[in-house]
Nucleic acid binder design. Sequence first.
DNA 1: ATTCCTTTGAAGGTA
DNA 2: TACCTTCAAAGGAAT
Length: 520
Amino acid sequence: MPQLSSGGGDDLGANDEMIAFKDEGEQEEKIQENAFTERDLADLKSSLVNESEINQSPNSAAVRRGQQGEQRGYQEKHREHHDGVSKHQDGGMYKTQAYPGYPFLMLPDPYLPNGSISPSSNKVSVVQQSHGMHPLTSLLPYSNEHFNPSPPHLPTDMSQKTGIHRHQSQDLSGYYSLPPGGVGQISPSMGWFPHSLMLGPSGMHPTGIPHPAIVPPSGKQEHDHYDRSMYMKPQVEAKREKEPKKPVIKKPLNAFMLYMKEMRAKVIAECTLKESAAINQILGRRWHALTREEQAKYYELARKERQLHMQLYPTWSARDNYEAGLSGVAGEKSKADWGKKKRRKREKLQDSNTDPGSPKKCRARFGLNQQTDWCGPCRRKKKCIRYLQGGGCPSPTSSDLSAIDSPPSHSPSPTRHHLYQQHQLPPSPGCSPPPPPPGSPSTHLPLSPPTHTRSHTRLPPLQTASKRGDPRQPKHSYTHTSTHTYTHLDLSGRASHGDTATLSVAKAAGLSLKVLTESQ
DNA sequence: ATTCCTTTGAAGGTA
DNA sequence: TACCTTCAAAGGAAT
């Protein structure tokens, strides 16, 4: 067990990597240990929440709540708020819809004391990336305590001008959208940006700090656009400016999202997978394989992100991004599309569930005291799938085995639904696992005919611990009550079954991780 | 071009 | 209070 044999004491994130190559037996040990420490994690997370609330600027909190209570329209709120931010930041970058990313995303390492990666308490698993974003770009900024509040390259008047703890925003800004290839990305080929490039396309004043949470209202963040927009020709820029678009303030990333951002490139490198859905499944499993300490780092980062977000956008509400078509953000194409998309999705869901009000749910059937008998979606407070599939009620056990664990019922189309019931593992050589050993729970998974190419990169549905508990109670999400949780571990289980190539790659990755962290 | 998929966590809304 | 829904990132695949 990594955490048991770490010896060195520096658990700088290598655990999860090493965990990944343990066999199931060891996984079970880990699971037990994790279960044992679940309460600790719960306490930790709880404390994080409390700390967040306590540490939160009373003013900002008050302002946030107060302003939210005001009867103001979304546009007004954002105009006001953005104006304020823009003024503070003196760059006016918010005014341009072609948000060019976040210059400071790339700043941390070189500007850290000693020019090294932050060895802060927030240090997280890091692997030296040969491509993609710098793994710490999204997380280093959290290293407040190791971060010079006024780095020499940054104008100090920024924090002075703003009523906000601007240094914190600098620190925390990086974990927002850091598109691969985006500004916040430190590509080996690019190295560190010259300062001039960091200023933006038009020699923008360095204080023009756009917040990565603000993105062009183009649905997805279109990271490529950020890249291009940074060096966009004025002609194109002018054209874009003709379309007045309100920036969309994105939600702050939660712990898992932060983890995903950091580890995605690594997983891609290891598995040669490109499909995000499959990658996310792997990441989800790895997330649960993390030790509570490792998870706690991300929870802490997420907490800080929320804090910063709240400070930067005191009037913002998650509701603002809810189905814009219904939230009064008229004229905003992306959000309108967004709304349409969501509405369609909802409609499809309702179509798929012909009896929305049906009492045939695991919750109703088994009750809260038997949540372990619930199907996965029910555990996640999603729509019950058990009673949507021909009315059959598979045994809870088999459900846990994922043998009949269907994709979440929100799979909008029956075709996809069926499609995603397949659990064929990715064909990529890097992650192609050997056939599961006889008796392995994986063998219980039904193999649908490979009629859908889409399923080739699909992993078996994930039955994670979090699905067993209340998703709103992450404190308990680390409970592992069944070894089944890990029977489908991505690299971990499979590699241990003899995929030496994968194992080597992954181990190499883990090794690089270790090297990097040790070198810090 | 658009939508879906997939993951966990946070937040807001509803009953 | 419990439950439900939506969104956050990502990018290939499907439509």
